[in-house]
Amino acid sequence: MQFDLSAVETATMVFVGTLVFALVLAAFVLTAGFIALVLVGVGKLGWFLLSTTLLALVHGINHGWDRLVHHASTVEIPGDFQGQPSPSTGSYPRVILRDS
């Protein structure tokens, strides 16, 4: 027994067509939403990695500078610097800056 499509009423065909169209639209919206969530997640992950890397870099630079300053404060310089004449402003002795 073959199915005769001409026996189906027009209203039934319109109803089924509307359901199929609604399913296609729903699938499109769900797919677009899922892709948007994935892109937001990837962006957030990228930003997290970038900010963590930059923060670690700044922390490393600060730590290295702190070690350098503390090491320099422990070094004893033999003798004092003698004042040297400056061509335009007179003579001023050099000042050795130390970490307090």
Rank of each mutant, 00 (worst) to 15 (best):
I96K: 11
P93R: 15
V29G: 00
L37E: 08
H59K: 06
G83I: 06
V75K: 11
E9D: 14
M1P: 06
V14C: 03
W47E: 09
P93H: 14
T12L: 09
P85S: 11
V40F: 12
F48N: 15
L97E: 01
S51W: 02
A72R: 14
I96R: 11
A26D: 02
V20E: 00
G43I: 01
A11T: 09
V40M: 11
L25E: 09
T89H: 08
E9P: 01
D80V: 13
F3L: 15
I35E: 11
S73A: 14
P93I: 13
L19H: 00
G79L: 02
I96W: 01
T52M: 05
S88W: 12
A22V: 02
Q2W: 03
L57T: 10
T12Y: 00
D99G: 03
P87K: 02
D80T: 14
L37T: 00
G79P: 01
L54S: 07
V8W: 00
F3K: 08
A26M: 05
F48M: 10
V95L: 09
V29A: 14
L5W: 04
A22T: 07
W65R: 12
T53P: 01
A56K: 03
I35V: 15
I96A: 05
T74G: 14
G64R: 07
D66Y: 08
P85T: 11
F34Q: 05
G46A: 13
V16F: 02
V14F: 06
L19T: 02
G64I: 03
G83Y: 04
G17L: 04
T10V: 12
A26W: 03
G79D: 05
A72W: 06
L5H: 04
V69W: 09
W65V: 14
V75P: 00
S86E: 10
V8C: 05
L5D: 04
L50A: 12
V75D: 06
M1G: 14
F15M: 04
F15D: 00
M1D: 13
F28W: 15
V40R: 08
F81C: 10
K44N: 09
A72K: 09
D4T: 13
S91R: 12
W47M: 08
I77F: 07
G46R: 04
A32E: 13
Q84R: 07
R67A: 09
L39W: 01
L30C: 01
F28T: 10
Y92S: 12
V69K: 10
H63N: 12
H70T: 13
G33L: 05
